[in-house]
Write a protein that binds this DNA or RNA. Structure first.
Lengths: 234, 234
DNA sequence: CGTCGGATTGAGAACGTTCAAGGGGCGTGG
DNA sequence: CCACGCCCCTTGAACGTTCTCAATCCGACG
């Protein structure tokens, strides 16, 4: 884990991970009490925290992509989350991390001490409410993923993944960035890299997506892709 | 949904769904402000709430078993949770339920209005903390399930399921109750009922579990079962 | 220009599903 | 009380999707 020098005055104060009344859009406290912050820079492939580490911080991605994973003893891996720029991660355990986090690409992060969040939560019921709502939303998203992993075909999973990334990504409309490898995608979707590759090839041959290199593609037919994601047997 | 008549004086006040300072073990308020409660009785197979319903209540199972599920348009189903007696459910959406809940067996429930919980959370930071911790725990459990659904073999899934039920169940030690059907189990584990049945047969033939009817079994070799659950290739 | 890791493609195998048939337990009705 | 019927559970056989293993290709980077 690499911690860069303290934030420069040129670095904008990052937004709090969840919307909080009393903070403006940039996350600056309206109560003239700036949030403590710690800017971190992590190189591609480096670990941000390990499984079992104290979960005493939350992280917000300023730029780049982060993955949180767990490894089984025999080498099988599952990616729990991809955190894109603007998103946050680190909420994978009550007191200790149950997953480890790595930088998919070079990333810049902000770390929020959890005790600071707890302090806020204790002081302000509205913050507590926001925080709770945020956690509940995460829980709902996790439950949605049960269906993807438990009952969807390979094509459905990949199509849904592309649509999800397209929505979350910040590139030009219709263009999807895939900063992670096929192995990462596979371990996120409960597939193998070969299967992911084959599905992408099929979608390309069907003119549903267009090729712009390994780590970028265009969605040529949004409706068709949606159809592939929702249900094979429509 | 069936709502029984108001609780009798013989009905013990049910415990709050999550541990809360200021409440004793039975969930009775020490602040001489009893929690509002609503006892419900639901017959086996009946719906408790539907997908899309307002998520304005949390439920605690007093006796029986409840499943929460979602259905895909083509009939595929996924069971998100089994709530055994003493456990609670209903936290499957921020404002509206994203799953529907049904009674696996005849059940007795207590419903807690969410606004009541919110009220408590707003009044007492310690309650807020407990509530938050509870939600985080649920989130961590959900993330664990990603691995089960994404990367485990059929045998591993079933073995892990049996161990989980054995731990949560309240029957005699070494005995596991399976109130739900093979189809329910399959939809919980992302398998088919046939596969579940086959795995159980294999475990029986290996003398790892013993037969006591379709809905009850004995764990004969806990270590072996643990081995099956953790990893095939140990 | 060469090297290396990731991506793609192919062939074969394996695991789980699908389809189908038979068996058993429980509740209902005669 | 017994018989029937309806689920559900179990078992078998064939199929299919995905995985595994392997070779090749491509692109990024030195």
């Amino acid at each position: 884990m690499q911690v860069a020098s303290a934030a420069r005055s040129t670095t904008p104060i990052p937004a709090f991970p969840f919307p909080v009344p009393g903070l403006n859009a940039a996350g600056q406290s309206l109560a003239s009490q700036p949030l403590p912050e710690r800017i971190m820079r992590v190189q591609r492939g480096r670990e941000i925290y390990a499984e079992g580490d104290m979960a005493d911080q939350l992280y917000k991605v300023i730029s780049g992509t982060v993955r949180t994973c767990r490894l089984l003893p025999d080498g099988r891996r599952l990616v729990a989350q991809f955190a894109l720029s603007g998103e946050f991660f680190g909420l994978d355990g009550v007191s200790h991390h149950r997953f480890f986090a790595e930088a998919v690409s070079d990333v810049v992060l902000v770390a929020f001490p959890r005790r600071e969040i707890n302090h806020w939560v204790e002081r302000d019921p509205a913050v507590a409410q926001s925080w709770q709502a945020y956690t509940l939303e995460k829980l709902a998203a996790a439950q949605d993923r049960f269906i993807l992993l438990g009952r969807r075909t390979a094509t459905e999973r990949v199509a849904a993944f592309l649509l999800d990334l397209a929505e979350r990504g910040r590139g030009p409309v219709g263009t999807v960035d895939l900063p992670m490898s096929r192995y990462d995608i596979a371990d996120y979707l409960g597939l193998t890299a070969e299967t992911v590759s084959r599905v992408l090839t099929n979608l390309r041959k069907s003119r549903i997506i267009g090729d712009q290199g390994c780590h970028r593609l265009r969605i040529l037919d949004q409706d068709a892709l949606q159809e592939q994601a929702d249900e094979e047997a429509l």
